[in-house]
């Protein structure tokens, strides 16, 4: 485990609660990214992220300092996400599908560089979007509008708005893929 993280955890365990803020800030993006696509909304993912860090704090004295912190924390997060799905009666076959994602995310090492590269690529790709597509993504994700409200704003039918969001996300995916390939080639 990263020495500085271990030292911070030791300080938290010794009673310095403010140090826990560093832990939250370091890992909250990873926990949020694990929860968001499975739970489907920013607010639900933020609630779970908050619960995960509170649960992790309560269990911190059982954490083995010789082990890496990131997978331990994401293991707790994956359990919270699964529990939330069960609470919504969404387990069954969907759980199989989400498991691919949860397993991939929890087994992946923490890599702020990788997350930043993805985030930068997304920002660049969003800039290239056509005006309507950009407005659709902005309304849906930045403002959290529902499909009907978004359709109303874009003055389109719900079906057309849904199709627009589908196509825009696929083009963003393809754009990010080529951006990351380019960046890989550069290095």
């Amino acid at each position: 485990m990263n020495d500085s993280i271990r030292e911070i955890i030791e300080k938290v365990l010794a009673g310095d609660l403010d140090q826990y803020r560093v832990i939250v800030r370091t890992f909250e993006a990873d926990v949020f990214r694990l929860a968001a696509p499975v739970l489907g909304s920013r607010s639900a993912a933020e609630d779970v992220t908050q619960d995960v860090f509170i649960a992790a704090y309560r269990r911190l004295d059982s954490f083995d300092l010789a082990e890496p912190f990131h997978p331990w924390l994401l293991g707790i997060a994956a359990n919270f996400v699964r529990n939330e799905l069960r609470r919504r009666s969404r387990e069954d076959r969907r759980m199989e599908l989400y498991s691919h994602y949860l397993d991939a995310m929890t087994s992946r090492e923490s890599s702020p560089d990788g997350a930043d590269a993805l985030s930068d690529a997304l920002a660049r790709c969003r800039e290239r979007l056509a005006k309507t597509a950009s407005a659709a993504i902005e309304g849906r994700y930045d403002e959290g509008l529902g499909l009907e409200a978004l359709a109303d704003r874009l003055q389109r039918s719900v079906t057309a708005t849904s199709q627009l969001l589908y196509r825009t996300r696929l083009s963003l995916r393809d754009c990010i893929e080529s951006q990351l390939a380019l960046a890989g080639g550069d290095s």
Partner: peptide, 22 residues
């Protein structure tokens, strides 16, 4: 890939929850 893109889109402009947790 699509789930990861969704997570990135959801995360855009998100502010830290550290204060809420503490």
């Amino acid at each position: 890939q699509l789930m990861e893109l969704e997570s990135q889109l959801q995360a855009c402009g998100r502010s830290s929850i550290a204060d809420r947790v503490l």
